[in-house]
């Protein structure tokens, strides 16, 4: 569905800066993520959301996220890749779907350093993240209230899981 939408208003560079700010906030509030990742924190994870126009490269230890146009070659260098639709990523992050079950059914695929992917999955699962709450905390009042309502409306309309369920 997202592929049919016009190109995002943010450039990849701006999207990367915004996502890096979010990543830094999450890492600051959840230090256990990096300790669970251990040596795999230094790995570069390619997040390939197949129904989104941008590829994401996440570097947990550097607390950096960069966005890359899908059409741009070559694919950024990475140690591990996770591929799937946005709905699968959001459902796994928010505890409504099990990562192994998504893998069994072929809805998520992985390549590269399997240990790093497993460590990331386990670290994020333990962190019980809530994307709506994280975004809300980045906004100042009264924008936070507006954002929460926006996210709730977006969740209802799209069917995406946008906040923590378990």
């Amino acid at each position: 569905m997202l592929r049919r939408l016009p190109a995002p208003p943010l450039s990849p560079a701006l999207a990367g800066r915004a996502l890096s700010a979010l990543l830094r906030r999450i890492a600051r509030r959840n230090p256990a993520i990096l300790s669970r990742l251990g040596p795999h924190g230094a790995a570069r994870f390619l997040i390939d959301v197949t129904d989104a126009p941008l590829l994401l490269l996440m570097e947990p230890q550097a607390q950096r996220m960069t966005a890359h146009r899908r059409s741009a070659a070559p694919v950024p260098g990475h140690d591990a890749a996770i591929r799937g639709r946005l709905a699968a990523f959001l459902a796994m992050l928010h505890g409504s779907e099990d990562g192994d079950a998504l893998f069994f059914s072929g809805e998520l695929a992985i390549a590269g350093d399997t240990s790093a992917v497993l460590a990331l999955r386990n670290a994020l699962d333990d962190a019980e993240l809530d994307l709506t709450a994280e975004l809300e905390a980045l906004a100042r009042p009264p924008l936070d209230v507006w954002l929460r309502r926006m996210m709730a409306a977006a969740a209802r309309r799209s069917g995406y899981v946008l906040s923590r369920e378990v």
Binding site: M92, G95, D98, D100, V166
Partner: peptide
């Protein structure tokens, strides 16, 4: 034990 909290809860 290798599964997620979503699996455990369900």
């Amino acid at each position: 034990r290798q599964r997620s909290r979503a699996y455990v809860a369900q």
